[in-house]
Each structure stands twice: as structure tokens, then as C-alpha cells.
Simulated assay, not measured.
Amino acid sequence: MGDTSQHGTAQVQHGPGAQGTRLRLLDAASELFAERGYERTTVRDIAARAGANQALLFRYFGSKKALFGEVMARGGQEQLRTTPAEQLFEVALRGMLAEGRSGGDRSLEVCLRSIGGSDEIAEALRGLGEEYAAVLATLSPSENGGLRADLALSWLLGIGLMRVVVGKEPLASADPDAVCGLVADALGHLLETPPKAGPAGG
């Protein structure tokens, strides 16, 4: 299979044309990984969508696996760097609710489609999830803020799974504003307002 061929990463010319081709390959890979997942996306398909030769993909990235890592880093890391912590959940959620539209970050959609791949892919996805959870944990004053953040992230991915992968109605066609509105109050309670213990003995 061409996807796992061993190709050394050659020195690449960094002129305007080369950068344009590299970006097209990244964009094409992001779209296809989000649509099909890692395993079902081939190097040939990525190159074809980018209008580039397969050899250029290996020249710029070395392997499909390395390209996947860069797709995840470019999207997820950029979102983490540029989004205020209190807006991260909604920004990530809206990105998944807008699934299928061009532009925007699709890292979590890529994550959902690629779950169940190789150990290396699982490790890359786990690392990104840990970074999202670490940011969400800063919103909780509770001692178990880390657990609350993991639950929030699990909810986020679960919503995406049911809408993007399973296509469960009515969620699959629900208006993004309606979904975000319903989610917001519960999320605030989970992360920002620790539940008070009731009196002993009820």
C-alpha cells in the first residue's frame, strides 16, 4: 500500500509555489480525514484533491502518518492557542456542528472519524484531548476540576459522534444555535458551579 511506504523527507524548496502546494495538501488531507477518517483516506486521494503529485506529499511530509500529525497540530493547536478558555468548548462544538463546511478547524471531526486507527494515531488523538481537557479544567474551581474537564470533553465528543458519525436525528439536523443554547447552561454547571452536597440523611 502506498500509504505506508518508507520515504525519506527530502530538503524542500520553500518558494511561493512550494508553499502553496504544501498548504493545498494540508487542506485536502484535513477535509478527507474529517470525511473518512485516517484509515480510509489514501495518499492518492489526498494528492488528487490537492491537484498535486503523490511524490510531493512524501517530499513535504514524509508519510501519511506524519501528514495526519501535522493536520491535527495545525488545527487543534491553533484553536487552543487563539481561543479564550471560556469560549473553547463552544468554539469546538460549533466547529463540529458545522461539519462538512469548507474552512474552519475540523480537528475534532478528524478525531471522531479516526478513532480506532493505529496505536500511533490513538496516541496523537489522546495527546490533543489531554490539551483540550487541561484548558477546560482551568474553568473549574472544584478540587476535581480535571475530572469535570474530562466529562465535558467526553460530552463534546459524544455530541460530535452522534451528529457527525452516527447521524442520529434530531441532533444530526439540529440548528447549531439551538444545540449550543441547550448545552451552555449544563456546561456552566459542570465546570463552574460545583454541586452543593445535600444534608446528611436527606
Rank of each mutant, 00 (worst) to 15 (best):
P195N: 02
E35N: 05
R113A: 13
A18K: 12
A29P: 00
Q6C: 13
A29T: 02
T41M: 01
G17S: 14
K168E: 14
K65L: 15
V166M: 03
T21F: 08
Q13T: 14
L125C: 00
K64I: 10
D175A: 14
E169H: 14
S173C: 00
L93T: 02
G100T: 10
E109I: 12
V135R: 14
I115N: 00
P195R: 05
T138V: 11
K196P: 00
H7T: 13
G158H: 03
E70P: 06
C111P: 02
S142K: 05
G95C: 07
L136C: 00
L88Q: 07
L190K: 07
S107A: 15
L171G: 07
V179S: 03
P170L: 06
E31M: 04
G103Y: 04
T41L: 00
I159V: 11
G160K: 08
G129C: 10
R94F: 02
G201H: 09
E35C: 10
F89Y: 13
A18I: 00
L56A: 11
V183C: 08
L139Q: 06
L125G: 07
P176T: 01
G117T: 11
A85Q: 07
A200Y: 01
Q54R: 15
D105F: 04
A178G: 07
I46Y: 00
I159S: 02
Q6F: 15
G198R: 15
G8Y: 12
G146C: 04
T138R: 15
V12L: 06
R44L: 09
E169P: 06
G62Q: 12
R22I: 04
G202Y: 10
I115P: 04
G76E: 02
S114K: 10
D185L: 13
V12N: 07
V183F: 11
L182G: 14
G8D: 15
A172L: 04
S5R: 15
V110C: 06
D27R: 06
P170Q: 00
E86R: 12
D105P: 02
K65S: 14
E86M: 10
L171R: 09
R36A: 09
A197N: 06
L128E: 03
S140T: 07
M96C: 10
P194D: 03
T83Y: 13
R81P: 08
G76A: 11
E131V: 02
A133W: 05
T21Y: 04
L67V: 05
M162C: 15
P84M: 11
H14L: 15
G103A: 08
G198S: 14
L157Y: 08
V165P: 00
P84F: 13
D105R: 01
T41P: 07
S30M: 02
E90C: 04
D150F: 08
S30L: 02
A197Y: 08
S107F: 09
G201S: 10
G75H: 14
L80C: 01
A66H: 12
V164Y: 05
R36Q: 12
E123V: 12
V183G: 02
R74V: 04
E143W: 03
K64S: 10
A186V: 11
G20R: 12
G103M: 04
A92Q: 11
E86S: 10
D185C: 06
A184Q: 11
A149S: 05
